[in-house]
Design a protein around this nucleic acid. Structure first.
Length: 455
RNA sequence: GGCGGAAUAGCAAAGUGGCUAUGCAGUGGAUUGCAAAUCCAUCUACCUCGGUUCGACUCCGGGUUCCGCCUCCA
């Protein structure tokens, strides 16, 4: 077991060694639940799901925590717009998120702490920071973290305080002692949701919830902390500052950040309004195609979302399933080079593209040899990264919601064609093939009869 | 302005100091009533300029281009 993980903090691959025996504590920043999840969220879900699966395969006892931010400005705003309560909105979005996740074959985290359920811990941590002099209440009821009180601020992102101040894109706020100070507790306005605290009515700032919840769930010092690339600064930088100042312990050993999903080479994001929700993509492409697409690039690289690339992913998954179609997979072969290689590449910072290449090599071998053990192995290895869990039949017969051609119609046409062929009426036979072909259905004749697939 | 990342064949995407990545697409062949699937063969690469080296796509330095973060964001 020699897993190497790229650590954002040191910018290099490091040999992974858990803090406590074989137990791994892993925290991933989840979603702010005010809207449906988009493909960028899907990437984080799928990537860290794959990480957890691999860690477990290596024998680690993983405690996977992914938070839910259920109180925040955008949530308040959206609830108001929708004319519904915050709780109704967030509960609905949480269950939508779980549905998307399940579709993508993402296993649920062990814990999903919600900010509103950890108010005591959040307020407790803020109080400690104030007591220790790392934070200060302002006259307006806000509490700020004093950035220059933490000498190592900038450690994760490689930024220097003076450079940040020179950048000067930080909002000017007279309440702050320093423009870079960030809010731990926000005083609430009259009609906003609020929690009682030592500093008056208010709600937590964004960064503090992750510090408080990760510490509560995993302890002061834990193994892996992940999230999207955009969270490394300021969110994760601020988490380090808060947590280490509050607990006095080192916070996290390994920081993992996954790359963005892009649209036309531009970052997909809510603010750019160029996002695709998981929901809408699922109408056209099967969940497994999306999962494949997301894992076909290395997790730290950007991926470009496009119709073309999804089509390509679909063809690729189809090739794997083709290999399994004409064979009854048996007990997976053991001690093969494929299996060893698969482990090796996954141990190399989760090199899923390389792992996929191995699946294709194995598929070719299966096509050639018709070896049932290797077919079983193909399924087994695919399963290790959450793929190849359906039957080839199910995969190939998936009807996208934009297709009106039903299975019954296809089967009927195939019957007609069978008769035409029996009558040696090949003109009619080919006509049917072409008709179906135009509608995205391919016919496959074999001695056992005619099967079909959507392409 | 500061910090960081990336440039690989038609497309996507790994990797390595010398040995076919991989998939899709293309071409030729086997197979098929015709196809599809499959197999065999095959064509397209490593941004640019220097340096190190017997040898660099791979290491080092300069340049160019693109992207991200520095403001909410996965």
């Amino acid at each position: 077991m020699s897993l190497q993980i790229f650590n954002t903090e040191t910018r290099q691959k490091e040999l992974f060694k858990p803090i406590h025996d074989n137990k791994v504590g892993m925290y991933v920043c989840g979603v702010t639940v005010y809207d449906l999840c988009h493909i960028g969220h899907a990437r984080v879900m799928v990537v860290f799901d794959t990480v957890v699966r691999h860690l477990r395969l290596l024998g680690y006892d993983v405690n996977y925590v992914r938070n839910i931010t259920d109180i925040d400005d955008k949530i308040i705003k959206r609830a108001l717009e929708n004319g519904e309560s915050i709780q109704t909105l967030t509960e609905r979005m949480v269950s939508e998120m779980h549905a998307d996740e399940q579709a993508l074959n993402v296993l649920r985290p062990d814990m999903e702490p919600k900010a509103t359920e950890y108010m005591a811990e959040i307020k407790g941590m803020i109080q400690v920071l104030v007591d220790k002099g790392f934070a200060y209440p302002a006259s307006n009821g806000d509490v700020y973290f004093k950035v220059n009180s933490f000498a190592e601020y900038g450690r994760l992102s490689g930024k220097k305080l003076e450079d940040l101040e020179a950048g000067a894109r930080v909002e000017v706020n007279a309440m702050k002692q320093d423009p870079l100070d960030f809010v731990l507790w926000k005083a609430s306005k009259a009609d906003e949701p609020a929690w009682e605290s030592n500093w008056g009515e208010g709600r937590p700032g964004w960064h503090i919830e992750c510090s408080a919840m990760s510490t509560k769930c995993l302890g002061n010092h834990f193994d892996i902390h992940g999230g999207g690339m955009d969270l490394s600064f300021p969110h994760h930088e601020n988490e380090i500052a808060q947590s280490e100042c509050a607990t006095g312990d080192h916070y996290v050993n390994t920081w993992m950040h996954c790359g963005f999903v892009r649209i036309d080479d531009e970052k997909m994001s809510k603010s750019l309004n160029n996002f695709f929700t998981i929901r809408e993509v699922l109408k056209v492409f099967q969940p497994e195609v999306i999962r494949y697409f997301l894992l076909a690039s290395h997790y730290r690289s950007p991926v470009n979302y496009s119709q073309e690339n999804l089509e390509s992913a679909k063809a690729n998954v189809g090739r794997l399933y083709s290999a399994l179609q004409s064979i009854t997979p048996g007990k997976p072969s053991e001690n093969t080079e494929y299996q060893a290689q698969f482990m090796t590449v996954m141990n190399d910072d989760f090199n899923t593209p390389k792992a996929m290449a191995l699946l294709f090599e194995l598929a070719k071998e299966v096509n050639k040899t018709k070896d049932t053990g290797l077919a079983g192995l193909l399924i087994k290895l695919g399963n290790q990264i959450g793929l190849l869990e359906q039957s080839p039949e199910t995969f190939f017969k998936f009807q996208p919601s934009d297709s009106e051609l039903t299975e019954e119609m296809i089967v009927q046409l195939i019957e007609d064609r069978k008769q035409a062929r029996a009558d040696k009426n090949f003109a009619r036979s080919d006509e049917i093939r072409d008709e179906l072909g135009a509608l995205g259905v391919e016919l496959l004749d074999s001695p056992q009869g005619t099967s079909w697939r959507r392409v």
